[in-house]
Design a binder for these strands. Structure first.
Lengths: 248, 248
DNA sequence: TATAAAAGATGACGTAAGGTCACTTTCAAC
DNA sequence: GTTGAAAGTGACCTTACGTCATCTTTTATA
């Protein structure tokens, strides 16, 4: 049984925060003294540590409450979403970093009078057509990777079967530059062929989609769902033909 | 002279925001009508665009106000500080990203029951000596990931090469109950064998570690780094032997 | 020119996660 | 029983606005 001050020292969390967590029902003390002083045990300490971790990872207190309360929380999905969010944030910061460096270099080169002048130019470039900056920035920064990054992890989910396909296709793209005759590429193709042999239902669905994209490139709504482009698909096809020829 | 609604359309900034900026003295309308309606000109539009830019870059409204008001604001210094701040944030996010990927991979391999169990283990291990989590995490996230994960290139990251291994091991565990003679299992083993044949350096490191864990189960500090247990490893070994026997 | 409708103004409350007073009550030691 | 330390509660503050609700001004039409 720890008093709040001891508990604070054990956990490193401020007293105000502990009272706040109590109030919002995130972490209740195990009991109270007659006078109303809060009492905690090591069980609460563990829970608090989980909370701290999830908070660092970027979840909000409300979300954390739900996660820890409900038994059927979809961890895989939640973590994926969080990851996507983090990647998006990182990307945004990278763009900001570039802008800042540009400005700093500009000032270093052009001196102080650079400031307003240049900053304004960054805009007038765009404001000529009286479009909104925010939208400009939103397009530049967000749309691009939101679409691409979000799609892949969701479909991969946490199923190792689908994950392997993702990995295989990813490797194809990674090593495409080696040419379809290259042994590494041929090895990847071989693994795909072996895996293709396992015609169980889960795979089938994914496989049909993946291989099927090539068939109906225009009308396919699924096209955007997979981060695989026609170049890579054509390459795969060539490599696969080559593989079949040399196999027999 | 623009009325507030026209100005909003030109700038893309909400009416509420414009009134707010007026109130805090960040952007005042050039004049008002008799009845008190705000009137703006293109001068205010330019200033607003500067404000928007600085906001995106990460400055707070209070800071922006000072910047634009005072003539002698040290731009170079301020931008540098901001850059430093951005870099720190990026770094923090990178660590979070690694943690998330680690968790996600863990779930991909061990399934849902991984969740609380594993997350809690991450803590209780340390809480015995009543250190604060934050420090623990700083150690965990920094030291572990930085040193170890960097050494074994990207196993936890999104590199498709490593991803395939994770997927393969995940499938082994998923279908272990079928027995090592099962054709699906044997197919997975075959793919592992084929991939193992690609003896490029990146793979080698990972592979040695993965396969090597079995060798030194007790002293291995790396053991905890991979979400793979001995049961699965033994199973893999049996399946692999069986595969080799039936191959020749 | 009278009136109705649209547009604008003002003010209050809410957000997330607590920090910082101010004031009061309980605990623990003597 | 007294007293100082520790704990309690409550209120207001922070950012950058969003969202009503109510009231006034402007504008368009009859």
């Amino acid at each position: 049984m720890f008093h709040i001050n001891e508990f604070k020292k054990l956990s490193g969390v401020s007293v105000r925060t502990l009272r706040y967590y109590d109030k919002i029902g995130l972490l209740k003390p195990v009991s109270k003294t007659e006078g109303g002083h809060r009492l905690y045990t090591s069980t609460e300490l563990k829970k608090l540590q989980q909370i701290q971790f999830l908070k660092i990872i970027g979840f909000k207190l409300g979300e954390i409450k739900i996660m820890l309360e409900s038994e059927e929380w979809d961890w895989s999905n939640g973590l994926m979403k969080q990851l996507s969010h983090v990647l998006h944030e990182k990307d945004r910061l990278s763009k900001i970093e570039m802008s800042l460096r540009e400005l700093i270099n500009g000032i270093a080169i052009d001196g102080e009078e650079f400031k307003i002048k240049k900053i304004m130019n960054l805009y007038t470039r765009d404001s000529r057509d009286s479009k909104k900056i925010l939208n400009y920035y939103r397009d530049e920064l967000n749309v691009k990777n939101k679409e691409v990054l979000k799609k892949l992890p969701n479909m991969a989910s946490s199923d190792p079967d689908s994950l392997e396909w993702i990995a295989l296709v990813g490797q194809i793209k990674k090593y495409m530059h080696l040419g379809f005759r290259n042994s590494r590429i041929q090895n990847i193709i071989k693994r795909m062929d072996v895996k293709k042999g396992e015609d169980f239902k889960n795979e089938e669905v994914f496989l049909d989609k993946l291989w099927g994209i090539r068939m109906s490139p225009k009308e396919s709504k699924d096209y955007n769902l997979y981060p695989i482009d026609h170049e890579a698909l054509n390459f795969m096809e060539m490599a696969y033909k080559y593989y079949l020829d040399n196999k027999s």
